[in-house]
């Protein structure tokens, strides 16, 4: 089993860093699934005490890594179904990539990822960095300990299935949404999303002391149709407001638009299109209260 990959473009390196930093804000550990064409990350701390939602990201590996070589351990070389599945600390990985962050004064020439064995398997992150005070590049190496998941256990590490929401709305004001959800979590533990096919989204938060209704209007309807008599269809779902807030607060990407899908009384799915072929998803199940 072998894996090595190399990034050279500063913008892609920063974006990759921002994706990993987002995951690190959500959960302690992340699953890294390396395929021949795609790289996936999953964070899911549903069973922990933390209130993080299930989030996963799929990226087109070759976009970020001009050099990308993955040799799985399996006996069928060339099989598309072959992967390397790793579990590692998202915090460590994010810290290892921190040098790629935008806003630092250093310039990074290249950044390699490599699977190697020290006392245990590691993803080595090797960055060649030039600081303003040095003429020559320095090599910064971080070895992120990883656990290799054997194929027999892969079913437990599958990418989640996308639900099929009745309505998907594009919300252009992510910043306002983030601030709103962050404050609403202090009002009530649950938050109700009402969406309608006429492009309206209402967020309702209720407590003993107050009822707060926030209205987003004239949203782009990505999916969902009114019924034949031109009546608008309405769906709603109540979710954990802390999880919703954790999702928005974790986002480290510059996107200003997010798609919110509502599967009536079942779940809310969130989708952030980082670029074509690079998507961040989250699913928040309905609260049954």
């Amino acid at each position: 089993m072998k894996f090595r990959a190399k990034m050279l473009d500063v913008l892609y390196m920063r974006e990759f860093q921002a994706i990993v930093a987002t995951l690190a804000k959500l959960a302690k550990d992340c699953v890294m699934i390396l395929g021949q064409e795609r790289m996936h990350f999953i964070v899911n701390e549903e069973h922990c005490s933390t209130s993080s939602p299930l989030v996963w990201v799929t990226i087109a590996a070759k976009d970020y890594f001009p050099e990308y070589k993955m040799t799985p351990a399996a006996a069928h070389p060339g099989d598309d179904e072959d992967f390397i599945v790793l579990v590692m600390s998202a915090t460590h990985l994010s810290r290892a990539l921190a040098v790629l962050r935008s806003g630092t004064t250093s310039t990074v020439h290249s950044c390699k990822l490599k699977l190697k064995q020290i006392q245990f398997p590691c993803i080595s992150v090797i960055a060649s960095v030039v600081s303003p005070s040095s003429a020559e590049p320095r090599e910064m190496v971080h070895d992120v300990p990883a656990t290799i998941i054997p194929a027999s256990e892969w079913p437990a590490f599958m990418l989640p299935k996308m639900p099929s929401p009745q309505i998907v709305l594009g919300v252009p004001s992510l910043r306002l949404m983030r601030s709103l959800v962050d404050k609403l979590k202090n009002i009530s533990p649950s938050l109700i999303f009402h969406g309608s096919t006429n492009g309206e989204l209402n967020l309702v938060s209720e407590s003993e002391m107050a009822t707060i209704t926030s209205r987003f209007t004239r949203l782009l309807l990505h999916k969902g149709e009114g019924n034949s008599s031109h009546q608008s269809t309405e769906v709603s779902c109540s979710v954990d407001s802390r999880k919703m807030s954790a999702f928005f607060n974790a986002l480290q990407l510059p996107n200003e638009e997010i798609s919110i899908g509502i599967d009536n009384e079942n779940c809310i799915c969130l989708q952030l299109d980082i670029r074509s072929n690079v998507v961040l998803h989250s699913i928040l199940p309905a609260l049954c209260v």
């Binding site: 399996a74 064995q117 398997p121 080595s124 054997p150 256990e153």
Partner: peptide
């Protein structure tokens, strides 16, 4: 010497379980 870096060796995946 066990603690110095080396490449991951190929392995038969059925052994894990």
């Amino acid at each position: 010497v066990e603690y110095c870096p080396r490449e991951i060796t190929m392995c038969n995946q059925s052994n894990g379980t």
